[in-house]
């Protein structure tokens, strides 16, 4: 399941929603906004998204996950809009019969998301702001 939302991400919700039948492992990754980038104090972040394409790509990544590893269920939730420091911008939760599959799957999802999915992050500093990687 994919969620792209401007609302605060409540990690518990995405753990509880996972289907867990026959599973011995639930793994949850939470990406939070860091207070410093290269020693510069960050005041807030803003995420922008090409939402229909991002959803299609995240669904494709989910399909790949099921082909590559023995996992039971996965939820990817990305927040967009303004995200304050210390708040959660990304949740990836995975259930699987055995834990290793979940660890591998989560790494894969995050690497693919950061590389290919059309979501962009703008960092606001005390006297400036810039889009990351641009």
């Amino acid at each position: 399941m994919i969620y792209i939302t401007e609302n605060i991400l409540t990690t518990n919700k995405y753990t509880q929603e996972l289907s867990k039948e026959f599973c011995g492992s639930i793994l949850v990754f939470e990406g939070i906004t860091r207070e410093y980038t290269d020693g510069q104090k960050v005041t807030k972040l803003e995420y922008e998204c090409y939402e229909p394409m991002a959803k299609i790509m995240l669904e494709e990544i989910e399909k790949e996950i099921f082909e590559k590893w023995e996992i039971h269920d996965i939820i990817i939730a990305h927040r967009i809009g303004i995200v304050d420091i210390g708040e959660t911008s990304l949740v990836v939760s995975v259930s699987s019969p055995h834990r290793q599959a979940s660890f591998d799957a989560i790494q894969y999802v995050i690497n693919r998301l950061k590389k290919d999915v059309p979501i962009w992050k703008k960092e606001f500093f005390e006297n400036s702001a810039s889009w990351v990687n641009s």
Partner: peptide
């Protein structure tokens, strides 16, 4: 991306295509 699929520069376009200019991703 044309109609939400990444393409090469040689991709042939059609009427009403949606061409998105995608800067380097930085989600997460």
């Amino acid at each position: 991306a044309v109609n939400m699929i990444y393409v090469e520069n040689s991709f042939k376009l059609n009427n009403n295509d949606e061409v998105a200019l995608i800067p380097p991703a930085s989600g997460g």
